[in-house]
């Protein structure tokens, strides 16, 4: 019976939250002759890479967790990332979540912009990040800041949904590429417009393709198609109490695979490092990158 409940819960979540992504992908895929991505396998950490100008990346992202004493949940978002300029990338997210024995709800939207101030590559490459979010009952955990913890997931959706979070989030993203490795560090500051103090967090990631050189022939499951790494992130308290006390911390391996048609699938089990964290969080995503997205419409219009 539990399996049946779980199956219907997962089915409902996939149907409602993933519908928009699948619909949009289906609409634009036929016009996309080559859709390719070469992405780092991070779920929370941002690297210094910007979206190539004119490219649109659509990602369906999910986080599944089971808080002790609460209900299993799946937080999802559909993400549209577009390269406006070589130094400016903008992203728009639609968020939702489904909680077992509770409900499936739309939780809000986020709009973020990333700016790369230095044009050339350096040992450490800074990127400035600014995001506005209007969410409630969000369970995607796209970042952890302040005193976010596992107890947040025990609140029923109908109550959590009333607590609107309108926030400004700023990040300093630092990224380096060294001998095939990417090493990225994020420092997060988050301000709720309701007047709460600034909250802080961090994320680190390191990853590398399993094979750096490309093979001469097309392959599907060869090493060059995989990237693997590790990710660690957590809260750093707030302006009234900076530090690790009463914060959640996560660490986990992460891997992605890019299919020959350009679809990238990523997976990561991430483990809570203290009693304030969820014991384990499973993240997975599917993404397509549409190169020179709007040129497809120009061509079809000719």
């Amino acid at each position: 019976m539990g399996g049946a409940v779980l199956a219907s819960w997962v089915r409902a979540a996939l149907a409602r939250i993933g519908f928009a992504a699948l619909l949009l992908t289906g609409m634009v895929l036929p016009s996309c002759l080559q859709c390719h991505a070469q992405e780092y396998p991070y779920f929370v950490t941002y690297s210094q890479e910007m979206e190539e100008p004119g490219n649109l990346d659509i990602e369906w992202f999910n986080a599944v967790g089971n808080p002790p004493g609460g209900n299993r949940f799946m937080g999802s978002d559909v993400e549209f990332e577009y390269g406006l300029k070589g130094w400016w990338t903008t992203e728009f997210y639609l968020d939702g979540q489904a909680t077992q024995n509770d409900s499936t709800i739309f939780t809000g939207f986020r709009w973020e912009n990333r700016f790369r101030p230095l044009s050339r590559e350096h040992w450490v490459n800074p990127v400035l990040y600014a995001e506005f979010e209007d969410t409630s009952a969000d369970k995607t955990l796209r970042e952890v800041a302040g005193h976010d913890g596992r107890y947040d997931f025990l609140v029923p959706n109908r109550l959590a949904h009333m607590d609107k979070e309108r926030e400004l989030e700023l990040k300093l993203i630092l990224g380096s590429n060294l001998r095939g490795w990417n090493i990225s560090e994020n420092f997060i500051g988050e301000k709720n417009f309701a007047g709460n103090p600034w909250e802080f967090g961090y994320a680190f990631g390191a990853s590398r393709p399993l094979q750096l050189a490309a093979s001469a022939h097309e392959c599907v499951f060869c090493a060059e198609k995989f990237q693997a790494g590790v990710e660690m992130y957590g809260g750093l308290g707030d302006a009234n109490g900076f530090g690790l006390h009463l914060t959640s911390q996560y660490l986990g391996p992460t891997v992605n695979w890019t299919a020959p048609n350009g679809m990238t699938v990523a997976f990561s089990p991430q483990f809570g490092l203290n009693g304030y964290s969820l014991p384990v969080l499973y993240r997975f995503s599917v993404s397509y990158e549409f190169q020179q997205f709007f040129s497809h419409f120009h061509r079809s219009g000719q």
Partner: peptide, 20 residues
């Protein structure tokens, strides 16, 4: 390819790695 020419729309391809 490593540095790009961003003002002209040419991105950096450093993410490909040196061999590629």
């Amino acid at each position: 390819l490593v540095n790009g020419n961003r003002s002209q729309g040419m991105p950096s391809w450093v993410k490909l790695g040196d061999p590629q």
